[in-house]
């Protein structure tokens, strides 16, 4: 059901039946260390390259996510997901091990939001089960967007640390005591002309602000309707900027937080916090999912954010547009 300009509320119930998270070695020492389902001791994971490790990570996460609730991959309508690497190789290659239809998505770090939106719409329609999965890996992202790993460059203070990790969720029609996807607001690509590829929080904050404000306007809700508004990977600076931008428009987000800036603890020198397509899916599948299951959170607005850039676009002098999708996750009380 369309509400307002960009928001869609789902008529049927779409349950998040299962979630599984796999965290890299550095993430497993961060703030969410007690929430992860599985932890990698080293980020090569006995694979020949970091790219292959990322394929293996996604394959593992999808398999375990299904095994947790005894669902066969053959019963799933589709695997949806993406990552940051060229031609979304890790996700596509991990899907070749399952006899399940596959749809590859790309929205930079907001891919998980896109996957949840499309997946929940399909489950709201005729599909029975959909797996949404994204991943990112520090070493592969470094090679994709920045420099060789061993090059002695100095990280700028605005920069973020790409999260090594992957998270998968299973969206399903099967009723149970699970959190629900209630709806979503699809974001627009917004460009405020920022050109510094290190400061992605600043580039994404306007898009996140636009999506969140549009969401409130469309639904007529106020920020305190939600227990938590959590963005994807804005980092500390991006979170402050988002708060400032929303305040200017008259929305005070006191319950705002950010997956990326919560990821690492202070003594881990990770700049502004975590980033990457796996950042929000990892936090969602571990910390958020657990708190939703425990009912310590009941209404969450989950806003993965993405910065659209490539190595070449930055060199050609293009600015960095951002995107954000807001997904409404709720618990129902009457179980």
């Amino acid at each position: 059901m369309k509400v307002g300009k960009q928001t869609y509320l789902l008529d049927n119930k779409v349950y998040i039946q299962s979630a599984y998270s796999l965290a890299g070695p550095y993430e497993s020492k961060g703030n969410f260390r007690d929430y992860f389902d599985c932890v990698m001791e080293d980020d090569e994971w006995k694979c020949k390259s970091h790219e292959m490790a990322e394929i293996e990570m996604q394959r593992f996460v999808i398999g375990e996510c299904l095994a947790k609730v005894n669902v066969s991959p053959l019963d799933c309508g589709a695997i949806m997901g993406g990552d940051l690497i060229n031609q979304i190789v890790p996700t596509s290659f991990s899907a070749r091990d399952f006899h399940t239809p596959f749809m590859g998505l790309y929205n930079a770090c907001a891919t998980f939001g896109e996957a949840l939106s499309i997946g929940s719409t399909l489950v709201n329609g005729d599909f029975d089960k959909i797996i949404c999965c994204t991943s990112s890996h520090y070493a592969t992202a470094e090679r994709q967007y920045r420099y060789p790993l061993e090059l002695g460059t100095q990280p700028t203070p605005e920069s973020q640390w790409t999260v090594t990790g992957s998270g998968a969720v299973l969206l399903s029609k099967k009723p149970g005591e699970y959190p629900l996807v209630k709806g979503y607001t699809i974001g627009r690509v917004l460009d405020f002309g920022l050109t510094d590829p290190n400061n992605m929080g600043g580039a994404m904050a306007p898009a996140a602000a636009n999506t969140i404000i549009t969401h409130f306007k469309d639904t007529g809700r106020s920020p305190d309707y939600y227990d938590l508004i959590i963005t994807g990977d804005l980092g500390r600076f991006g979170r402050e900027t988002l708060h400032y931008l929303c305040k200017k428009e008259g929305y005070v987000l006191d319950n705002l937080n950010d997956c990326g800036s919560m990821m690492y603890c202070d003594k881990q020198k990770a700049g502004q916090g975590g980033s990457g397509a796996g950042c929000c899916s990892l936090v969602f599948a571990s910390y958020l999912y657990r708190r939703l299951v425990e009912k310590s959170l009941k209404k969450v607005l989950f806003v993965p954010t993405g910065a659209m850039l490539s190595k070449d676009s930055a060199l050609q002098g293009e600015s960095i547009p951002g995107i954000a999708h807001a997904v409404i996750i709720e618990r129902e009380d009457f179980y």
């Binding site: 090679r143 420099y147 060789p148 790993l149 061993e150 090059l151 002695g152 460059t153 100095q154 990280p155």
Partner: peptide
């Protein structure tokens, strides 16, 4: 690379930094 993260220009500009910029992509 650990030295470079701390020293920045101090390890880039000497000729060792040139060697680093040849070897690191070769290894990568």
């Amino acid at each position: 690379d650990k030295l470079g993260a701390k020293a920045g220009g101090g390890s880039i500009v000497p000729i060792t930094g040139f060697a680093n910029s040849v070897v690191s992509p070769a290894m990568e």
